[in-house]
């Protein structure tokens, strides 16, 4: 299968390893990955902040970029950006009165999958240890990001994949379905409420005793990780893709205290 990768702006610029891991996982399954060069961002930050006019060129760019390449499906390592592509892009076009763009955005959206959705529903990954050689000998807790959980109804897909990783012990996160408080510009416009939400999230993560908090969205993980780091916590954050890509011969480094990476030591 030919799969177009939508890296998403935050991963492209800040967390390239999540996109690299996505590529590694897909190629390990024998698929061809392409990277449409024109891509940049889904525009969600603009839409969610009320800047629909400014979101329009961002949306139009994404649609153009993912129309210009020939592929079977597109994938992004982010539930939030995929939800934006599927639901917000046609809305932004409609708001601008551009029916043609709406139709094109809709077509791109229909071909776009969140990573776990693609792996489980389309590529039939049921046993990451066997199918991908996934190995990660650590205690992990998992934060299900809101948009993946509610807008894409990912259900157990991400956690199910984590459970199938060799050596990984998944511990339940209390109040897992509670938002971490990121919410894009919400985190700066309502910084106090956002920080209070984050404090509860990090306290819950800490209570699990896990050494890593995994998730499917680096926006939320940047927020959670930023909080844990500020609280001088030793718990690291990792994207689902990075854990799936981790193998016994090429283990992923676990982000450790003070943002430094530490060598993986098997339990």
């Amino acid at each position: 299968m030919k799969i177009a990768l939508f890296a998403t702006c935050i991963v492209d610029a800040m967390y390239p390893r999540a996109a690299q891991a996505t590529v590694a996982v897909l190629e390990r399954l024998g698929h061809e990955v392409v990277f449409p060069q024109g891509q940049a961002c889904c525009g969600q930050m603009h839409v969610n902040s009320g800047y629909l006019k400014e979101a329009l060129p961002v949306v139009a760019n994404h649609v153009r970029a993912f129309e210009s390449e020939d592929y079977d499906v597109a994938v992004a390592p982010s539930g939030s950006c995929v939800a934006s592509v599927k639901h917000q892009h046609p809305m932004v076009a409609r708001h601008a009165g551009d029916a043609a763009l709406e139709e094109r955005a809709d077509a791109v959206g229909k071909k776009t999958y969140e990573l776990s959705e693609l792996l489980v529903d389309v590529l039939g990954v049921t046993n990451p240890a066997a199918q991908l050689g996934s190995y990660f000998p650590h205690t992990v807790t998992y934060h299900p990001s809101c948009h993946g959980m509610r807008l894409l109804t990912l259900g157990d897909r991400q956690a199910g994949l984590l459970r199938g990783v060799k050596g990984l012990e998944l511990v339940d996160l209390p109040e897992a379905d509670q938002c971490c408080g990121f919410g894009g510009t919400f985190s700066v416009k309502n910084a106090d409420v956002s920080s209070a939400m984050l404090a509860d999230k990090t306290a819950n993560i800490r209570s699990t005793g896990a050494s890593v908090c995994a998730g499917g969205d680096y926006s939320c993980l940047m927020h959670i990780g930023g909080g844990l780091s500020r609280q001088a916590d030793t718990i690291g954050t990792l994207h689902l893709a990075e854990i799936l890509a981790s193998t016994e011969t090429e283990p992923v480094a676990v982000p450790g205290p003070a943002g430094r990476t530490v060598k993986v030591v098997a339990k």
Binding site: P16, A19, V188, S195, G226, S229, R230, G259
Partner: peptide, 15 residues
């Protein structure tokens, strides 16, 4: 943002 969260140093290279 930085009232309660750090930002990691950006990577040396974009994806």
């Amino acid at each position: 943002w930085t009232q309660s969260r750090d930002i990691p140093a950006p990577p040396a290279q974009s994806f």
